[in-house]
């Protein structure tokens, strides 16, 4: 967003006013509002605003609590054996290596399928589209798909991939189901990233005699890349944490997968089974800690990519 000079002037005036009040000792505290100036509020209103502070702080506190609680109980479980051994006795003993490999494999299969489809759709919607009606249908499809709960994807994957296409409970079925699930995320983030590329990039490329495809691949996509990567990272995070869609399509075998048709158990599914069936609480905490650390790492990477994107744009 570009702010108008008029707006800047008003902000400046406000700031001076605020400082003046501070100097005269009439204003309480030095924290300053984002959009609105302070002063003149009654006690009741100030306490209402205090409640808003409390609400926001408690939302962040919940996040902090969840992360700290899981890591506090889970980190002591994280030994090399836990990470590098296969489980025995249904997961009561041993480690979680097959589930780590399963998670990585299913997520990788899902993204290998979803990225070309999602990025291709976004390129079509932004650079190639001709008819409004077609675009509207595609957008509607993507929006609806985005709202469908994961358990429905699980049912669909089970019916279509596992039974109808006879893939069985496998890496491939699980990956395809996840691909369907994260596709809308990839479409939306890629579309936004491509839309943010300045028109001049395209104009220069086209004026030099490049075709539309050359323009897309050499002028538009490289600039949009960090934004696309953000979308991909967010999708990875969603796929890694998914349980309902995977449990009915990838199965829950604890053996190491040998091919794309082997059934696998992901970390989330393993964690769910350990916790729900009360097999082993320490092992459940350990798995949860690995899961949460992975999700945090993926999300920080996504924000990093996004900040780079924003920095490059401005």
């Amino acid at each position: 967003m570009t702010s108008a000079p008029w707006e800047d002037g008003s902000d400046g005036r406000e700031e001076r006013g605020g400082r003046e009040r501070d100097r005269q000792g009439r204003s309480h505290g030095s924290r300053r509002g984002g959009g609105l100036p302070r002063g003149g509020d009654s006690l009741a209103e100030r306490s209402a605003i205090g409640l808003l502070w409390a609400a926001a702080i408690s939302a962040v506190a919940v996040l902090g609590f969840i992360v700290v609680y899981v890591l506090w109980h889970g980190l002591p479980q994280l030994t090399p054996e836990f990470l590098l051994q296969s489980p025995s006795a249904m997961g009561r003993e041993g480690g979680i290596l097959p589930t780590i490999i399963g998670t990585v494999a299913v997520t990788a299969v899902g993204l290998i399928i979803a990225i070309p489809l999602g990025v291709g759709t976004a390129i079509y919607l932004t650079e190639y589209t001709r008819s409004e009606a077609v675009t509207a249908i595609i957008r509607f499809g993507a929006e609806c798909l985005a709202g469908i709960p994961s358990i429905i994807f699980g049912l669909f994957g089970f019916l279509f991939f596992v039974i109808y296409l006879k893939m069985g409970w496998s890496l491939l079925s699980g990956g395809l189901t996840l691909a369907a699930m994260v596709l809308p995320t990839i479409i939306r983030t890629t579309e936004e990233a491509i839309k943010a590329v300045p028109l001049s990039h395209r104009e220069v490329s086209l004026s030099l005699g490049a075709t539309r495809w050359q323009t897309v691949t050499r002028a538009v996509l490289p600039t949009a890349m960090p934004g696309i990567i953000t979308g991909v990272m967010l999708s990875i995070g969603r796929a890694v944490g998914e349980t309902a869609a995977v449990i009915f399509t990838a199965g829950s075998s604890l053996r190491l997968p040998t091919s794309i048709f082997s059934p696998v158990r992901t970390m989330s599914v393993h964690f769910y089974i350990l916790a729900r069936e009360g097999i082993s609480m320490p092992r459940a905490y350990g798995t949860a800690a690995v899961l949460v650390l992975l999700i945090l790492a993926i999300n920080f990477a996504a924000y990093w990519a996004m900040n780079r994107f924003v920095a490059r744009r401005t």
Partner: peptide, 26 residues
């Protein structure tokens, strides 16, 4: 370039096709 455009159009219908398949099967 026109061929690529058509391929992209086909890809772009993937989300809609998944939605249709999903509805149909369930």
């Amino acid at each position: 370039d026109r061929l690529i455009g058509n391929i992209l159009l086909a890809i772009a219908f993937s989300a809609v096709s998944i939605l249709l398949l999903l509805t149909l099967f369930i």
